[in-house]
Amino acid sequence: MQQLNDLLTGNLGEFGPLIVVGGLGVMMILATLPILLKQQKDPLEKLREENERGVVVTPGKRLRTNNSKDKLEKYKDFLEPKNEEEYSAVRQKLMQAGYRTRNSVRYYHFAQFALGIGGIVLGVIYYLMFMGNSDNATTQQTLTYILGPGIVGYMAPKYWVSKRQQERQGQIQDGFPDALDMMLVCIEAGQSLDQAIIRVAKEIRPSFPALADEFEMVSFEVKAGKDKSTVLRDMGERCGVMDVSSFVTVLIQSTSFGTPIADALRVYAGEMRDKRVMRAEEKANKLPTKMTLVTMMFTVPPLLIILVGPSAHGITQLGAAGP
């Protein structure tokens, strides 16, 4: 045992035994995790799944179909939040980022778990290859090299989804005034609201595909028989943009009170155009303030060198020459 300890200490430094034990522990956790998460299926549930996958042709015979099942289904209790509010919040955020699949929450948490574990493994490999023989590595540095990549890998899916959500909401916000103008033209031409939504979704797809997807989903849900007010509210929640939520409220109120939709769209479309101009002016007014710091960083140091440099050089030469 002492020889093994000396061997590990000589090759990996003073933390050699601790690193080996930690690596074996991580490997054991990764090896036993699928066994721990695997649950025994209820026989009735298993029979029900078989009945769903197959079609009975004759008594005692069954025609099998190739219904593929999600491979992460058996890990859903581990990957999906138990709290309903937390699950709804993650689900809504993923929908606003454009991920609408049924198992999006499960894949999101699986990506966090897999990238976190992968980052820790890469951190351990990096530490053993480049820092293992160093005697000056402290405990804080060791934890930073090992746990740092794991934390980065765990937070990477969250950062990616947040960026996708912001980009998609910005695209919807930029294209919404043009979509309202086109919808107003379609309604004034004699089309119904449902037909106008379909036409607008088709026309704006090359420029604003995210907004076109939302309009198409509204038309599909209305065709399926879902209540129009509920469909519009769901659209406002999926977009996560205040302009769309206000538009949904205007349409619902116009339908409830029986006022012409064209008049409401004309007023609201004018407000959206004015609001877009105000946003552009706001960005333009912020630009000089943002450029001030950059201008000072790249202008003041060269100016000081040009003005003060010759005087400083003359003073140093005078001091070196002496009396």
Score class of each variant (00 low, 15 high):
163 K>M: 05
33 L>N: 01
5 N>Q: 08
259 T>K: 13
111 A>N: 11
30 L>D: 12
99 Y>T: 00
68 S>T: 03
140 Q>C: 00
289 T>D: 14
199 R>M: 13
135 D>G: 13
301 P>T: 01
166 Q>G: 06
16 G>M: 07
8 L>Y: 14
168 R>N: 07
274 D>S: 10
49 E>C: 10
206 P>H: 01
176 F>Y: 15
190 G>W: 07
205 R>T: 09
43 P>K: 12
190 G>V: 00
130 F>H: 07
114 A>N: 14
178 D>Q: 11
143 L>H: 06
259 T>D: 12
192 S>Y: 08
256 S>P: 02
19 I>W: 05
201 A>H: 04
125 I>N: 10
134 S>I: 02
46 K>C: 01
263 D>R: 06
176 F>W: 14
274 D>M: 03
312 A>I: 04
42 D>I: 00
98 G>Y: 07
18 L>Y: 07
224 A>S: 10
41 K>R: 15
187 I>C: 14
68 S>N: 06
220 F>D: 12
189 A>R: 03
27 M>G: 11
148 G>Q: 02
86 E>N: 01
165 Q>D: 09
237 E>P: 00
265 L>E: 15
175 G>M: 07
115 L>C: 09
188 E>H: 02
271 E>H: 09
245 S>D: 15
293 L>H: 12
174 D>T: 03
211 L>E: 05
267 V>M: 14
315 I>A: 11
114 A>D: 06
303 L>K: 00
127 Y>Q: 15
285 N>L: 09
254 S>V: 00
71 K>M: 03
112 Q>S: 14
273 R>T: 00
210 A>H: 09
90 V>H: 11
62 R>F: 10
18 L>D: 11
286 K>T: 00
252 I>D: 13
282 E>W: 07
301 P>M: 03
302 P>K: 01
247 F>H: 10
217 M>L: 13
139 T>Y: 13
110 F>W: 15
13 G>W: 05
135 D>S: 15
224 A>I: 01
283 K>V: 08
57 V>C: 15
256 S>M: 03
129 M>I: 06
81 P>S: 05
318 L>K: 09
66 N>A: 04
183 M>V: 00
210 A>I: 00
120 I>W: 12
182 M>W: 06
107 Y>T: 04
191 Q>G: 01
123 G>A: 04
137 A>N: 11
47 L>V: 03
304 L>H: 02
296 M>K: 05
45 E>G: 15
270 G>I: 01
28 M>P: 03
39 Q>E: 12
279 R>G: 04
183 M>W: 03
307 L>Q: 05
313 H>V: 07
